[in-house]
Design a protein around this nucleic acid. Sequence first.
DNA 1: TGATATTTGTAGCCTAGGCTACATTTTTCG
DNA 2: CGAAAAATGTAGCCTAGGCTACAAATATCA
Lengths: 144, 144
Amino acid sequence: MRVPPTTLPAEPTHARRFGKARTAQASAVLEDYAELIADLLASEGEARPTDIARRLGVSHATAIKAISRLKREGLATARPYRGVFLTEAGERLAARVRERHRLVVDLLVALGVPAEAAEQDAEGIEHHVSDATLAAFSRFLKAR
Amino acid sequence: MRVPPTTLPAEPTHARRFGKARTAQASAVLEDYAELIADLLASEGEARPTDIARRLGVSHATAIKAISRLKREGLATARPYRGVFLTEAGERLAARVRERHRLVVDLLVALGVPAEAAEQDAEGIEHHVSDATLAAFSRFLKAR
DNA sequence: TGATATTTGTAGCCTAGGCTACATTTTTCG
DNA sequence: CGAAAAATGTAGCCTAGGCTACAAATATCA
């Protein structure tokens, strides 16, 4: 059964949506790293690759490669054997990620999701929440 | 400032959550493909790699490689130049993904997210929603 | 039919994000 | 101090998911 191509829209219907989702996810890991580094700097006074790796459950080699990407993106700096630091851009990113994470968790909990599952799901969900959706979450939480 | 390692928990605090999110995302793309193939089979009677690629906004080579992964995972079959078909497992996956997608979109809309943004965000969010969270979404939608 | 279009498939390259294994540097402590 | 332990960095390998370029098969139509 061969259908003439005209029955399929020339404009890629899903493309815009899917494309967005893909590239968004590319930076998801860096967002996690930035957030964790900020946490460690606040709570421990320093963020060492080994601690970062342990907290994320990856090998230290993996963490170091990710840190290299952070540096390349201008989000972090590091002095060998002296830990990792965030640039201003990195701090801003971390703050935004933390705030967004909190909001997503709060929303899930408000909807009746058990705290444990809420934390876990938020980790994956938060990277795909647009500003519009975030605003809606915020309004909903305030309104109730 | 070197802090004794004992101040950091031996158990990787974030590891469980992050690890889950990562491997979950590995199958996200295959879920998208399965859903789209089911759509095409229903609406067009066949699912050809070229149409799949156009709808997803990727090159046909990329689509073909993803289809190979689907076959390897036992989710799809394909006869050269005769399109792609879903196995029973593939059909089940597609049905689950479609249902989940609808639920996520409905929830976002119910929370006041504009339809356009809801569709877009759902594409990324849906792959990270656990059964517990899905159930909560469902309850919330019914209750209002 | 036969030339042209389209579709499909293959090959090779890239980056991200994982890993292990090994080498090096720094810190700790007897 | 100097040896052992810990942390760091490097090299090399893997898969997923993208891409372009080229080759081959199939459809279309003059």
